[in-house]
Each structure stands twice: as structure tokens, then as C-alpha cells.
């Protein structure tokens, strides 16, 4: 397994407040990294540092290096747009764009300049299939994406990311608003997808991390407390805080 992301001493400031403290970790490809931690521990900030979404907000400053395939994405001359085409993101709240299901899925490919209809059709079918929703919507591709249910919209978001054919998929609590069945479908999709992609999943639900993550990282107050193979994090954590958190005694 090769190293996809190599994060070295990443610190993030929001309006001068330190929100992420010298986080260093390596993320290998073809697996799921789960990120857990209490509210405000910096999980989202960390995740969004990986596709430079943070810099769209005012008051953001990053220090340290984030190497993607050995190249520093914060280095001079590294284009954020190119980066985001390689690193896709699914947000906590499902956001279907106000256009048809089909147009939602091909949004990324169209940006990338793909115009060929057969190619776009193919991408739509592939991505929706991979997101476990092709059968549900294949007859309603012209319907507005806004009319899908929350669970369907979130899978649509996943399909939309897949259609860009990224290398990494970031997910920020993708199931926080979903019912157990929709959650199961997404988890199933992710387990399938990890063969091809590097997946980083922030979750509030420690059980979800335990179920599908290969590796798990625990964040607390902006610091990476520990990271390791999921089984070990949940059964034999080194740090007391991790133990408290995964056993639910935190507080």
C-alpha cells in the first residue's frame, strides 16, 4: 500500500485562533481512514484542509505541508481547482444542486470539459450504480435533484463526486442526517469503493468507524491523539482519552 497523503505538522488558524495543532499523519491508498472525535475537535477543519476548501472562508491560515503523491498542495503554484478535481468531497448535509439528477451527476465532468454525450451517459450510469442508486433513479434522470429524499440526495452527492473520477474521496459525517437503511447503503458503497479510491471519512458515530474504517484517527481539541488500525484503536488504545471516547465515557 502506497502513501497517498503525507501530512506534516499541519496547523490551522481561524482568525488567529489555533484550531489544528501540528497534525502529522500518513494516509495510504485503497482503504478507508475513519476520523473520530468530539464536536469542535477539528475534524472538519482537517478534512477541508485536504482539498483546500477552507481557504474559501475568511480568516483561514495554514502552516506545515500536505503532500499529495509527494507534492505539497499548499506549495506555490499548486492549483486548488486541479486539486479539487482529484480530491472529491461529500458534505454533512446532502446538497442537490437545483438541476436535474442527470445534470447533478455530470456537473463535475462538464466542468472538466467533457462534452461527449455517450461518455456523459456512461459516467452517469457508472456513478449512480456505484452509489447504489441507479435502479432507483434510472427512469427519473430528468427530475429535479431537489425532489429526491435526503438519503437519495446524499447518494446523489456521492455519485456526483464519483463522476469526476477522483483519486480521493473525503466525507464529512455523510450519514449524520440519514436513516439506518440509507446509512447502510452508503456504507456498502464505501466498502466497495475503497478498492479504487482513498477514502477519508469523518464520523460522529464511532460504531460506523468501527464497522467500515480500516484505520482510525482520533482527534481532540485540534490535536491528533492517536491513529492506528481500527481494531486496535477500539480494543487496545494507547491513550486514556481515546479509550474514554470510544467507550463512551467521555465528558
Amino acid at each position: 500500500m502506497d502513501c497517498k497523503f503525507d501530512i506534516q505538522d499541519l496547523s490551522v488558524y481561524w482568525r488567529g485562533n489555533l484550531s489544528l495543532k501540528k497534525v502529522s499523519l500518513k494516509i495510504s491508498s485503497s482503504q478507508i481512514l475513519g476520523i473520530i472525535g468530539p464536536a469542535g475537535s477539528g475534524k472538519t477543519t482537517f478534512l477541508r484542509s485536504l482539498d483546500r476548501m477552507n481557504e474559501l472562508e475568511p480568516g483561514f491560515k495554514a502552516e506545515g505541508r500536505v503532500l499529495l503523491d509527494g507534492e505539497d498542495i499548499y506549495g506555490a503554484g499548486y492549483d486548488a481547482v486541479t486539486l479539487r478535481k482529484k480530491v472529491g468531497m461529500v458534505f454533512a448535509l446532502p446538497v442537490a444542486l437545483p438541476m436535474s439528477v442527470y445534470e447533478n451527476v455530470v456537473y463535475g465532468p462538464r466542468l472538466a470539459g467533457i462534452r461527449n454525450h455517450d461518455r456523459l451517459d456512461e459516467l452517469v450510469e457508472q456513478s449512480l450504480t456505484a452509489a447504489f442508486m441507479w435502479n432507483e433513479v434510472k427512469d427519473r434522470l430528468d427530475m429535479s435533484g431537489l425532489r429526491l429524499s435526503g438519503g437519495q440526495q446524499q447518494r446523489l452527492c456521492l455519485a456526483r463526486v464519483l463522476a469526476m473520477e477522483p483519486e480521493v474521496i473525503l466525507l464529512d459525517e455523510p450519514c449524520s442526517g440519514l436513516d439506518p437503511i440509507s446509512t447502510a447503503k452508503i456504507e456498502e458503497a464505501l466498502t466497495e469503493l475503497k478498492k479504487k479510491y482513498t477514502i477519508i471519512l469523518v464520523t460522529n458515530n464511532t460504531k460506523q468507524a468501527a464497522r467500515i474504517a480500516d484505520q482510525t484517527a482520533f482527534f481532540l481539541m485540534g490535536e491528533l491523539i492517536e491513529m492506528g488500525v481500527t481494531d486496535r484503536i477500539f480494543t487496545a488504545p494507547v491513550h486514556k482519552q481515546t479509550d474514554d471516547y470510544v467507550t463512551g465515557r467521555f465528558g
Binding site: 476548501m53 474559501l56 479539487r84 472529491g88 458534505f91 446538497v95 456537473y107 466542468l111 469526476m164
Partner: peptide, 12 residues
Amino acid sequence: SYRQVSFSLGAT
């Protein structure tokens, strides 16, 4: 959120 999604999909 529309803007965020668009940017995250690699839009300029």
C-alpha cells in the same frame, strides 16, 4: 452550500 459543492467539484 451550492457554492461549496460547486467548488468542491473543481469549479473555478
